[in-house]
Design a binder for these strands. Structure first.
Lengths: 132, 132
DNA sequence: GTGAGTGCAAATTTTTTGCACTGCG
DNA sequence: CGCAGTGCAAAAAATTTGCACTCAC
């Protein structure tokens, strides 16, 4: 059905070789910098195909879709609203409770997206809470 | 600072009088239907202003921003991928654990967004799991 | 009369699509 | 050969911005 062409292989290699949460555009730019220039439409189609194949993961927040390695296993994201840095975390109990919350409403849970916004340690130090 | 103009009052009234998760466009259409036609840019600016003032709430998923009443208190969302219906739920324990997860990484949590995807009871009945 | 708000249309941003072309199987 | 994939550019969708104008204080 889907072919793993050289372009898609390049996209996959780049994603697999980094811990970055790639957006289509920056991924295309990085590939271009490496001499593997790929049309932006092909990048979008390639990312969708790779996700469909279960080879990469995606998260959406801040109005943009981002892709990352899938071999890190499931995790959620902690986004710093100060500097934009992204931390990952996994909280098994939250996972379980989400299942429970869905079931409580009679839903069959198929997925979820949890993004916690806040200030990372560095930014929190620069933005002291009122009174500091 | 921000003025609560007649346009913004109309937006606020509409949101407060319903349990809908409004998108800018459908809200503008509904207002137009009621004879209160407001420019789409004004709707966007008004929604942003009302959110800033803490008068309405927003959630973002599916690439779109949605606005809803704030007086329902905090809650998260359960979105049916079959029919698009949205259920709300609140799970105090999940809230608490999110705080804990953020703290574990040294973050000061300022907000979060949790969307659980799944099939609502009606859609689940129509999409029996393999084996059914 | 000043500044925030409005409305239109144009611009932006992210993503998708049409279409002719290419290349693997 | 045939069809999925590619690349370009145009289209689409959601949102923002420029600009002249208006209105409330």
């Amino acid at each position: 059905m889907s072919r793993l062409t050289s372009q898609r292989q390049a996209i996959l290699d780049l994603i697999r070789s980094s811990d970055t949460h790639w957006e289509a555009e920056s991924l295309a730019r990085e590939l271009a910098d490496r001499g593997q220039s790929i049309g932006i439409a092909t990048v979008y189609r390639g990312l969708a195909a790779l996700e469909e194949l279960g080879l990469i993961d995606s998260i959406q927040f801040g109005g943009k879709k981002r892709y990352e390695r899938i071999d890190k296993g499931h995790h959620d994201h902690l986004v710093c609203t100060g500097c934009g840095s992204i931390e990952e975390f996994i909280h098994p109990q939250i996972e379980r409770l989400q299942q429970a919350a869905a079931e409580q409403k009679g839903f069959v849970m198929t997925g979820h997206q949890l993004v916690i916004y806040g200030l990372c340690p560095a930014c929190a130090a620069q933005h002291p809470v009122a009174g500091g």
